[in-house]
Write a protein that binds this DNA or RNA. Structure first.
Length: 421
RNA sequence: CGGGGCGUAGCAUAGUGGUAGUGUUCUCGGUUUGGGACCGAGUGGUCCGAGUUCGAUUCUCGGCGCCCCGACCA
């Protein structure tokens, strides 16, 4: 994409009403725009990042037999009343409204009830199971206090998946299979080494739920971690009983600030029982379905990645989620010959299938470099009168600052879409 | 929801009970051209409402909004 056609602009200064690094940088670089506290619009660059993350999650959920769907944002009051969760005293994050035709509706803060209810129409026998479905949904939660930029908003995108099984064994097998699937997601996002399956407060059915906590200074959680043993415990369940059951001592754990990027819940049969989601087993008896729910905070991950990898110059995207792989910075663009030459490089890269943002604006070098650093694409290729004459292109790796000089041929080989540059 | 802070131009900021200033952005002209360069000109502003006052951006009250700490986070 040509940067001259991108409607967003970078800003030198961070907005005064944002204290969080992720929001400051994302706004300055033109990825997001603030609508109100805890509510952000995703602009062209930001949307590309969100879609990249979604695609990685999608691939890994599909790999464990997840079927994608999308549910509604509007939800029925009566359904939530049937499980006792319409009451504001019980669920304090409801946004509610009323229909002009009469009746009340809620805005989806979770989809456990609606998905279970809907599944009644499709599940009646153990032969129908197991089933796992997931969606990417904008969740609306009336948080008392939004904070930390995109990490704790009132409106955010989440992947939520729900599993339905006919017996405990397949249910637990599926539940366990989501852990490595989740870890693959986080590895692909470049935060695998810093993300831990964490014991956390569970639901009514199980002693623990499992969270996926990523080491992050801007996170809201405190997690006690032992990297060697791969054990992590949320402080909310850190007690003698927990330590003993996990065979570890307090001294072996390190207190760490983390951000919750995912969580999985084992509902057992309780949720289905509440909803009346039953199947016939082999003996012809009606039994409640075994259910689990599995979340990943998509837009929160955007914030976590910015927080973790940004440096003093700006954002540094992991290659897997960067809106473009290459930032082609054209200098001396007032010189028609250089400009034509740079245009040619741009078209060739595009032809090779390389995702490239081409800074074709007629600006001074310093301004372009500053913007490039701020936007944070993995590789910067500089083309100027000098490089045109010498036939060498400067390639800078954003994360490391490494500078290479490549010929045009080397450049295309290096950025061939199939390579692992 | 408890506590604290803050609302001045697109953005960032200064200041004052009496015509609101600077930087940046933006527009125009010129010089520049590998790290946000320089010179000149121009556009553009006191969150909303009530009160006090001859006069309020400033003081008082209320509202709305934003940030931070705490509580909450199924």
């Amino acid at each position: 994409m040509r940067q001259s056609q991108l409607f967003t602009k970078t800003r030198k200064e961070a907005p005064a009403d944002e204290a969080a690094k992720n929001a400051q940088l994302l706004i300055r670089a033109g990825y997001i725009a603030k609508e109100m506290a805890g509510v952000y619009s995703y602009l062209p660059l930001g949307l590309r990042v969100v879609e990249k993350i979604k695609q990685i999650v999608r691939e890994e959920m599909n790999a464990i037999a997840g079927q994608e769907l999308i549910m509604t944002a509007l939800q029925r009051k009566e359904l939530w009343e049937s499980t006792g969760r319409w009451d504001d005293e019980v669920v304090d994050v409801w946004f509610k409204s009323s229909l002009k035709a009469g009746g009340e509706v809620g805005f989806g803060w979770s989809h456990e009830e609606p998905i279970g209810e809907m599944m009644k129409g499709y599940i009646s026998s153990y032969k129908d199971l197991p089933i796992s479905v997931y969606q990417f949904q904008t969740k609306l939660r009336n948080e008392m206090r939004a904070k930390s930029g995109v990490m704790r908003g009132r409106e955010f995108v989440m992947k939520d998946m729900y599993s339905f099984c006919a017996d405990e064994e397949s249910h637990l097998t599926y539940y366990e299979s989501t852990k490595p699937a989740y870890m693959k997601v986080f590895e692909r996002l470049g935060i695998g080494d810093d993300t831990f399956v964490t014991f956390a407060a569970g639901g009514a059915f199980t002693k623990f739920s499992h969270e996926f906590q990523t080491i992050c200074e801007a996170g809201e959680d405190i997690t006690y971690i032992n990297k060697e043993k791969g054990i992590a415990i949320n402080e909310e369940v850190l007690n003698d009983e927990t330590l003993e059951s996990l065979g570890i001592t307090r001294e072996e754990l390190t207190e760490t600030k983390t951000a919750e990027v995912g969580n999985i819940f084992n509902f057992g049969q309780q949720k289905a029982e509440d909803l009346g989601l039953m199947v016939k087993n082999k003996d012809g008896e009606s039994i409640p379905v075994w259910m689990g729910s599995y979340g990943i905070g998509i837009t929160r991950l955007v914030g976590v990645l910015v927080e973790k990898f940004a440096d003093e110059k700006g954002i540094v995207w992991p290659e897997a989620v960067a809106p473009f792989k290459v930032h082609l910075v054209g200098l001396n663009s007032d010189d028609a010959e250089v400009k034509d030459f740079t245009d040619g490089i741009y078209l060739s890269l595009k032809e090779k299938g390389v995702e490239v943002l081409y800074d074709d604006r007629d600006l001074r070098a310093g301004e372009k470099f500053a913007d490039s650093d701020l936007i944070g694409l993995p590789y910067r290729i500089v083309v100027s009168r000098k490089t045109k004459e010498e036939g060498k292109f400067e390639v800078v790796t954003r994360a490391s600052g490494e500078v290479r000089l490549l010929t045009e041929e080397e450049l295309y080989n290096d950025f061939d879409n199939d390579s692992n540059t």
